[in-house]
Design a protein around this nucleic acid. Structure first.
Lengths: 159, 159
DNA sequence: ATGGATGCTTGAGATCGTCAAGCAACTCGA
DNA sequence: TCGAGTTGCTTGACGATCTCAAGCATCCAT
């Protein structure tokens, strides 16, 4: 791993400073609290642009054309649900449905320029999240990234 | 000696490829991805007990009696919304509304024994989250906890 | 004691989410 | 080539979530 050394270093420091290791329950609770706070931050920023959090989340997936089915998979929901969300985004000119040249059943969703600009602003306006990350120096950010990277494989495993 | 050699090799590799600290955007994206995954994990566990994620989240707040208004604040939503959620939980015997002895306007929501048991199980059944945390040893968990603790003040600041 | 705040509920209206059903288009084997 | 099964998307029905405005009961402060 690329972040291995920095991580090891930081871990040792923290272990020296913090005598009592947290219980798994405590860690779980903290992770949940921060996740919730970040979601609220995201939802508030989206709302300032007249978007629901779900609409903003969908928009955030559109780095390129994505078929409806793909969006349903990314958002972990039924395909029929995506229809409505895209409908509302499209009626506001933030996304566009394009036919797929290789499969006429498929409709690819693409963010318009306005859509891209909007989601860019939403991300930039997540004040709480940005200020939280600003509290960490570069070494700490590197350590955090390394630790979170190690959590990913477990989290992504489908039960 | 075999292991020593391997270790030396590894160390040199790690030193040679100086880890680029992650950009703030990368870190943000990773945090968001893990937050989403944990929420999905929670929602799936709740669904196995016939609860929506919002119902489970409300239930998770009930360590003691909490007035409706307090729940609205905790869940960051309108008080009128809480009425419906509590209605549905109450009709299933998972929570109870009790009059407040000091203020007759207030109704305190309390989890029933069945409610407590249910939310306990939901937490225990978050397989992905538990297995992700199991990937960290005690030192790493301590380090992660410390880092997340430093994020908290920034996140909790109301914009 | 009364006017203004506070706590909760109700009703209207929009979004989100699932499921079942339907149509169009693709795939693959006989 | 043809037809059966699969896949992608939409529609409609229905329930849950969410906000806002309005209403009632209760508190609180003057």
């Amino acid at each position: 791993m690329f972040y291995g050394l920095k991580l090891l270093e930081y871990t040792r420091t923290m272990t020296a400073i913090t005598p009592q290791p947290p219980t798994k329950a405590q860690l779980l609770e903290l992770v949940a609290a921060l996740g919730t706070a970040q979601w609220q931050d995201f939802a508030a920023a989206a709302a300032r642009h007249g978007l629901t959090s779900v609409q903003a989340k969908l928009l955030a997936q559109l780095k390129g054309p994505v078929p409806m089915r793909g969006l349903a998979t990314l958002l972990v929901c039924d395909a029929s649900n995506v229809t409505g969300i895209v409908d509302r985004l499209e009626s506001r000119g933030l996304v566009r449905r394009e036919p797929d040249p290789r499969d006429r059943r498929v409709k690819n969703v693409v963010a318009t320029d306005e859509g891209l600009e909007t989601i860019r602003r939403v991300r930039a306006e997540m004040q709480a999240t940005h200020s939280a990350l600003d509290a960490l120096d570069e070494e700490e950010r590197t350590a955090l990234y390394g630790l979170l990277e190690r959590l990913r494989p477990g989290m992504e495993r489908r039960a």
